[in-house]
Amino acid sequence: MTIWINVIVQGVLVGGLYAMFAAGLSLIFGIMRLVNIAHGDLIVLAAYLALVTAETLGIGPLPALLIVAPLMALVGYALQRLLLNRTLGHDLLPPLLVTFGLSVIIQNGLLELFSADSRRLQAGAIEVATFPLSEGLSIGALPLLSFVVAVAVIGALQLVLYRTALGRAFRATADDPDVAQLMGLDNQHIFALAMALSLAVVAVAGVFLAVRANFDPAIGPARLIFGFEAVIIGGLGSLWGTLAGGVLLGVAQAIGAQLDPGWQMLAGHLMFLLVLAVRPEGLFPRVRA
């Protein structure tokens, strides 16, 4: 019994990470109908940036985040302004193709710079710290921190979207980009700010990914899939739903892995297919008028 509680707890905690993968993806799709195929690779890019920052400055991964998150936000603003804005229009295909190309470029660029070797961000003592809950059951400090941060990130995004002028501008532009311009909002700038916010979240996700497990330049696409699945399970347009989606995906994977180590991915995908079959609109879709 303890084993299964443990499995579920671990699944829930890793689900926070998946929700962070998903939140940036969902934000971008919601505001500008752009499916960012390079999202997973940008997560990996952030992980490498954190690695370089931590090694160069001799600081831990979490302090490194203070540099990597603003840096990724800048990358996001420039990327949107200089490249992705040009692909947006009535056709969904150009942004898909361009971000797919971007994904290939990032993967190969990282491969060239860092080789295919697995890397890991060392976080020090916190990596092995645990909180014992009961006999045979304990929670690792790092997974717990990553989950708490995920909840905080999603709560912060929710606040930005629904309680600030910037969030109002995001939602108005998502509703009707033409009319938003009539209000004096520059779509190009708003989209670039959204991508900046998305990549700041990506930076947080990338650092926690890199502390949690080994990473190499090729793992981006799988993170993208986890992100997609969390968004779809949770329901498009709902950030808290995305968190629930990430948790469900994490739990399904953990249970699968417990049954047979080879079933981890399969169990996650099966959960995704199950939700698609039973509730194609996701668990918590936001009702659109």
Binding site: A165, R171, D175, A289
Partner: peptide, 15 residues
């Protein structure tokens, strides 16, 4: 703006 409240629609006009 369909996902904004009445007041938010007005505020965005004044942004």
């Amino acid at each position: 703006f369909a996902s904004l409240t009445v007041e938010e629609n007005l505020l965005i006009g004044g942004q």
